[in-house]
Amino acid sequence: MSDEEQVIDLLDRATASVPAALLEAPHAAIRRRVRRRRAAGWTAAAAAALLIIAGFAVARPGPAAQMPAAPGAAPAATSAQEAPGVPWLGARIDRTGTRLTVYAVPLLGKCVAERDPNRDDLVLDDDRVTVQLDGIYTGCADDTQVTSRTFTLPQALGDRFVVDGRSPRGQPFLFSDKDVPDFAAGGWSEQKAVWLNSGAAVLQLYLTRPGGPDLIFTPARWQPEPDGRVATPDHTLTLGDLQIDVYNRPGQQAAGWFSSHNSDVRFMLTVAGNPLEKDAFDALLRGMTWA
């Protein structure tokens, strides 16, 4: 076999088996993306048309004389300028509803730098809480570092939306600690969060307690397909108001569930290090405080 034939053979062998859950084409998700592209296309066309009209209006001489700018005055900010700061990906609200943590978007090969927390912005309205994070992206060796900021709200968040002031049309996800076990009550303490992989938009939280077992907890945005792309669990537990999917695979167990107030966030919990027996993993889950 030539080098090239060997590589062809290697690539074929390595990709021969696609995970069962991904074998079927997600038609609904593709259709959604097609619709989003069309909507974005119309928006862009409308924006371009508006810019042309606006440019024409600016180019025409105005009827009134222009006021001369004061010497040394800074140019006025325009809406076309990009808002300063970095966008954030998701937010977490604690059990009291008053401690809000937002996580800056992870970028491949980059980290957030030059942050001045005093320049972060928090605006409280009746129907929404708007957060804006200061900082810029710069190249870095470890792009799994998480940049986050925790704010204390004067009143519980309640039903208010949480939006990114820098990209208000974005769709950051929000999850509540009420959707996850009370790890502190179980004796676990939370280590600093990291991103699961380079550039991956999945938070990973490491939880440790004396005597173990240590846990890995990953919340991530997830939009389930109507045709059920969630992997079939080995069994399901009902804990509190939540349906917990339990996966027992050789060498690893995992529990997965959706946030209760919407289905946009999927949580996953695994045991770090040596796996437990199947029954012991179920017992561990049942022993946690879910509410």
């Binding site: 995970p19 970028l107 491949l108 550039g199 997830w222 792309r229 969630v230 695979r249 690893q252 997965g256």
Partner: peptide, 17 residues
Amino acid sequence: WRRRWRGELPTEQLPEQ
């Protein structure tokens, strides 16, 4: 790659063993 990875990763798949 030139811009940024915009992907959203689902997590309920167990890592391959």
